[in-house]
Design a protein around this nucleic acid. Sequence first.
DNA 1: CTAGGAGTTCGAGCGCGCTCGAACGCAAGC
DNA 2: GCTTGCGTTCGAGCGCGCTCGAACTCCTAG
Lengths: 161, 161
Amino acid sequence: MATDDLMSKALAALDEVDGPMSVEVIHRLVDVSAATAPMTITEVADLLDMSPHTLRYYERIGLVEVARDASGHRSYDAKAVRRLVFLTRMRLSGMAMRDLQHYMRLADKGDDTVPERLDLLLEHRDTIRRQLKELTLSLAATEYKIATYGGHTGPSSDEEA
Amino acid sequence: MATDDLMSKALAALDEVDGPMSVEVIHRLVDVSAATAPMTITEVADLLDMSPHTLRYYERIGLVEVARDASGHRSYDAKAVRRLVFLTRMRLSGMAMRDLQHYMRLADKGDDTVPERLDLLLEHRDTIRRQLKELTLSLAATEYKIATYGGHTGPSSDEEA
DNA sequence: CTAGGAGTTCGAGCGCGCTCGAACGCAAGC
DNA sequence: GCTTGCGTTCGAGCGCGCTCGAACTCCTAG
C-alpha cells in the first residue's frame, strides 16, 4: 500500500462526505465580515455556535476585549466579532488556547509583531499538515481493519490484533 | 477557492511533510506482528512510545488483560501486545477511550459481536473522514491568513480579523 | 408594583486522558 | 545483610477547555 495510494483514498473520502456542519460553519464565519451593528452576547453565541459562558470565558482569559453598554451588558462591535471569528476558526483547526493567547497578545502590541505572528501561523500550518498526514494513515488503518471484518465474516483468526 | 482546489492543496501538503515520527510509529506498530516472547512493561512501553503508567492505566480501565509472572510483574504476551498495538492505533486516530472500552468489551464477548464492532469501525471511519475535511478547510484558512501577512508586509488593514 | 427574562460576576466543578507519588515487594550483586 | 533497581497497588492530581450555579442587577410588560 504505497503512500500515494493512501492519499487518493483520503481524497476520495473527502469527496464522499459532505460535511454536515463544518463546512457550513466555516462559510458562515467567512460571511460575518458584513456585520456592522454591535451585538449582544447571545447573538454572537448563536452566530458562532458557542455558549455565552464560553464567550465570557474567552474574554476573561484575555483573548478579546468587549465593551459594555449603559447597563453593563457586553456589546460586541464588529472588531470584537471579527476577532472571535478568527479565534473560532483557529480553535476549530486545533490551535491551543495558550497559543491563541500568545498570538492575541502580539496582535494587541501592534504591527511590529506581524513577523512573529506569521511565524506562529506557519508553525500552526505545519501542525495541521502533520495532523492531516496522521489522519490519512489512521484512515487507511481503519479501512484495513474494516476490510478484515468485511472480507471474510468467518471466525476472527486472532482475537483483535 | 473551489473545494477541489483545497483538496489539491491538502494533498500537496501531505506530500511535502515527511512525518518525522507519526509514519515511523505506525510502521513500527505494523511490524510488531513478529513479537513472540512475553515482554515486560517497560519493553512494551518503549515499543509503543508510552509510559508504564499509561499501560497500567489501560489495564485498570479494562482495555486489556495482562498476566503476571512468578513475582507479580506484568508479562505481556503476543496477544496482549497485539491488542495494545490496535488500541494505540485507534487512539492515535482519535477514537475516544469510552468507544475503545465498548469495542473491547465486544471483542471479549466473542465472534458474535463482529457485526457490531464493524459498525463501530465504520462510524469511526466516518469521523476520521469528517476530521480530514475539517482540517483541510482549516489548512486553507490558515494559508489564506499567511498569504495576507506574507502578501503585503505593510500595516495590517484591520487588526486581526 | 411586580414578575420575568436576559444579563452580570465569581468561583467551583467536570470530563478526558493521562501522570505522578507514596509506600511497598522481590531478586540480584557487592 | 544491604543497597539498587525494577516492578507493584492505590489514590490523588493535573492541564485543557470549557460548563455550571449562585447571587445579583437591570429593563420591560402587564
